[in-house]
């Protein structure tokens, strides 16, 4: 039975008609046109689909709509754009952190959550925050450096 759910997505209140057990990722990609959230495994194993729900990194691929009702969801589209990138996106460009890039939407989301709660993460903190994410191309060391660089940029250190 479809129901109406009210959620806030990227700052905008939205009403969505969906089955209670429909995973959030289908709503984001197919109903709201937010295709930056990526399907990887549907099993919460790879991290491609990571979004922020009330600020916490959460897998969208198996997250039922009825558990998201009334909450706020933030996706990669809310970080920045090609023309106006978020410091994290800029740091990834500066480090050329990515190859195929498919993992990056989810990684940027987890990195944002990390920097929101810890402006000066150690390498171990960054690794721990990203360990739920897989990357097949082997861009890991650049990604770790990019998160470190973004943290410095957000602290106002170094040139942007």
């Amino acid at each position: 039975m479809a129901q109406i759910f009210e959620i806030t997505v990227n700052g905008e209140p939205r009403q969505v008609e969906a089955e209670a057990d429909l995973p959030l990722i289908y709503v984001l990609r197919n109903e709201l046109g937010l295709t930056g959230t990526r399907y990887g495994c549907g099993l919460e194993q790879c991290g491609s689909c990571m979004v922020l729900i009330d600020g916490e990194p959460s897998y969208a691929c198996a997250r039922a709509m009825d558990s998201v009702a009334g909450r706020t969801v933030q996706t990669i589209e809310d970080l920045g754009t090609v023309a106006d990138p978020h410091p994290l996106q800029q740091a990834f460009l500066d480090e050329q952190a990515g190859q195929c890039g498919y993992c990056l939407s989810g990684i940027l989301i987890s990195a944002k959550a990390l920097l929101d709660r810890n402006p000066s993460p150690s390498r171990a903190d960054i690794v721990a925050a990203l360990d739920g994410h897989l990357c097949r191309c082997g861009a890991h060391s650049r990604i770790i450096r990019a998160v470190d660089r973004a943290a410095a940029m957000l602290r106002g250190e170094g040139g942007v």
Partner: peptide
């Protein structure tokens, strides 16, 4: 890389064509 800006902003893939 020319392809990275769009990939970092949530675009650029075959999967986005719906």
């Amino acid at each position: 890389r020319q392809d990275l800006p769009a990939k970092l902003a949530g675009g650029a893939y075959i999967y986005d064509r719906i």
